[in-house]
């Protein structure tokens, strides 16, 4: 009971801090800190997506950068065509975030459906490897496709628009990311509490018993995988707008690794784990990156220590082990 209360308290502190720090930065005139907070929020959304597959469903996808990058390219390509006034597949380009998000989620979901349907036939190490292989295939596609910049990437000259806000302003962009983050966190909590989440966790813990009580492991896992890909794709579209740039690097295998790292640093399967993890990763990069150019060395040591000695991540360290994760 106490532990549960500690976790909720920690969640509230994290959510509050992620809002309060950029608000302070806004008043202090430090737009870069607002941008950093926005980056944290968007990375956290991507990791919430992965957390559905990995944390709830136990599916170690080493290829979620595929959906992240796909979402990014949807935003980039739509903005590119809107900017040049040319059609794409017979449709006009758009510079509105909402339809771009919808397209990014639909396409990411469809791709996750295909990858999931094929990959879920395997398990364990083979699942890790086949998701990696599909992501690598995706990575080489924009890399060698010259129409949208190939290796050079695709700049977004003007951020896409959101009704009622001026996305060019760091604070407005932050509000969008923060709002979407709260929505996806809510969705994650709902999923976990619903029968769907219970079934998913039952399958992860004991697939045979779950099958015996009439739960189809394949179908449930596939749905979770698709949802997971959709949310990560949405985050990709937002990240493209934040950095005003899309490149194949968004689909690189290291990006998949980074998303897993975020979840582990924060705490697997924990609602606010991705928020804590993304904050640690970005904070580490900014703080230690300012002190030493070899900050990745120290990040590696911290990560190693977390894996070997603190498996619950930050949330686990403070709020104790989760009941069923």
């Amino acid at each position: 009971m106490d532990r549960l209360r500690t976790e909720w308290l920690l969640n509230a502190v994290l959510a509050g801090a992620l809002f309060a720090v950029p608000l302070w930065a806004l008043m202090a005139g430090e737009p870069f800190i607002i941008t950093l907070a926005t980056r944290i929020a968007i990375l956290a959304i991507a990791a919430v997506g992965l957390n559905i597959a990995l944390g709830l469903g136990g599916m170690v996808s080493f290829g979620h950068a595929l959906y992240f990058g796909l979402g990014g390219y949807v935003a980039g390509i739509a903005a590119h065509h809107a900017f040049h006034g040319t059609p794409v597949l017979g449709l006009p380009g758009t510079n509105q975030m909402l339809p771009i998000w919808a397209i990014a989620m639909v396409l990411s979901g469809a791709l996750a459906g295909i990858v999931g349907a094929l990959s879920l036939r395997t398990s364990g190490i083979f699942f890790i490897m086949i998701t990696l292989a599909f992501a690598q295939m995706g990575f080489f596609f924009p890399l060698s496709w010259p129409a949208y910049g190939g290796e050079d990437g695709l700049p977004i000259f003007m951020r896409n628009q959101f009704p009622g806000l001026n996305t060019a302003r760091p604070w407005d962009m932050f509000l969008i990311a923060y709002g979407v983050l709260l929505l996806t966190l809510g969705l994650f909590a709902m999923l976990r509490a619903a029968r769907f989440g219970a079934a998913l966790m039952a399958i992860r813990q004991n697939p045979d018993r779950a099958a015996a009580i009439g739960i189809s492991p394949f179908g449930i896992k596939l749905v979770a995988f698709i949802l997971s890909g959709m949310i990560t794709g949405l985050a990709g579209a937002m990240m493209a707008d934040l950095t005003r740039f899309v490149s194949p690097a968004m689909m690189a295998w290291t990006m998949s690794g980074e998303l897993i790292v975020i979840i582990i640093l924060g705490g697997v399967g924990r609602m606010f784990g991705p928020v804590a993890g993304a904050a640690i990763l970005v904070g580490f990069e900014v703080f230690f990156g300012g002190l030493t150019e070899h900050w990745q060395f120290w990040l590696g040591l911290v990560l190693l220590a977390v894996v070997l000695f603190a498996r619950g991540g930050l949330v686990g360290l403070i709020a104790g082990r989760a009941r069923n994760v």
């Binding site: 870069f32 990437g153 760091p170 950095t243 740039f245 490149s247 690097a249 968004m250």
Partner: peptide, 15 residues
């Protein structure tokens, strides 16, 4: 890396 250059440019200008 282009994506890194974009981030650095943003930091150089804003920070």
């Amino acid at each position: 890396r282009p994506e890194l250059a974009v981030q650095i440019a943003e930091r150089m200008i804003q920070s």
